[in-house]
């Protein structure tokens, strides 16, 4: 088995990324200049104490936030030079998100939640239906298409969220504590899914977690402390 592409250029390149909130007395340096490379097909976990800047990093990687200083290259785009619409289009076509709190639209069925990214991509209705159904099947939720989130368990909701994240066939999946609200058994089911997508589709995954056994699914663990990368741990 070939080690997923640590050759060639990284898919993600952070250089000297700083993120500072507030001014004067309220000034908080959430990220104090970090460098990070993620290669295509990698599975990276971010760990570290609370407030160490993991979510801040994820938001920047997800183009939901922009660094105060530094450079972020995604593929061959310099993200810091894009405007709001440019970042929205990256989120639409290149990035997928999974959140700790699932973040599904509450009164809308699983099927429609999964279709939503395709709506913004302008995919025709019929194709959208098929792809959403297929995506739900891949996370093991066939037969639950017409349930609304409140009719699904936490683990099932997170699987809907994963189906929604992968339906648009993104290059990078960003998951901020995806198992944070789930029990251990459910957590490992979710991780099995993510690992499978990483292997089978060469989906690049960056994930934040507090739990070492969850982080163990990743090949590389990046440890944060006080807005800096403390060390990077490579697993076998």
């Amino acid at each position: 088995m070939t080690e997923p592409g640590r050759q060639g250029t990284p898919l993600i390149q952070l250089r000297g990324v700083e993120r500072v909130y507030g001014q004067g007395d309220a000034r908080v340096v959430a990220l104090g200049g970090i460098d990070l490379d993620v290669w295509p097909g990698e599975f990276v976990a971010l760990m570290g104490p609370s407030g160490s800047g993991k979510s801040t990093t994820m938001n920047i990687l997800g183009c939901l936030d922009t660094p105060t200083r530094g450079s972020y290259r995604l593929g061959d785009l310099e993200v810091t030079e894009l405007d709001g619409d440019g970042r929205a289009l990256l989120r639409r076509y290149t990035l997928g998100f999974v959140f700790q709190g699932f973040h599904l639209l509450p009164r809308v069925t699983a099927q429609e939640n999964v279709e939503l990214p395709l709506v913004y991509q302008g995919v025709p209705t019929h194709e959208r239906r098929l792809r959403a159904r297929e995506s739900l099947a891949q996370v093991g939720l066939s037969g639950r298409e017409h349930h609304v989130p409140s009719e699904l368990s936490g683990g099932q909701q997170q699987r809907v969220a994963i189906a929604r994240a992968i339906v648009s066939q993104p290059k990078v999946l960003l998951a901020d504590e995806p198992t944070g609200n789930l029990d251990s058994a459910r957590s490992h089911e979710i991780m099995a899914l993510l690992t499978r997508f990483n292997r089978e589709r060469h989906l690049t995954i960056v994930m934040v977690t507090h739990e070492p056994d969850i982080a163990a699914y990743a090949r590389r663990v990046v440890h944060f402390r006080d807005g800096h990368i403390e060390r990077i741990e490579e697993s076998s």
């Binding site: 289009l89 990214p117 913004y120």
Partner: peptide
């Protein structure tokens, strides 16, 4: 507001 946040994360532009 949360719904709007979700839509933005999924790839909605401000104009959408």
């Amino acid at each position: 507001t949360r719904e709007i946040g979700i839509r933005l994360a999924i790839g909605a532009r401000a104009a959408d």
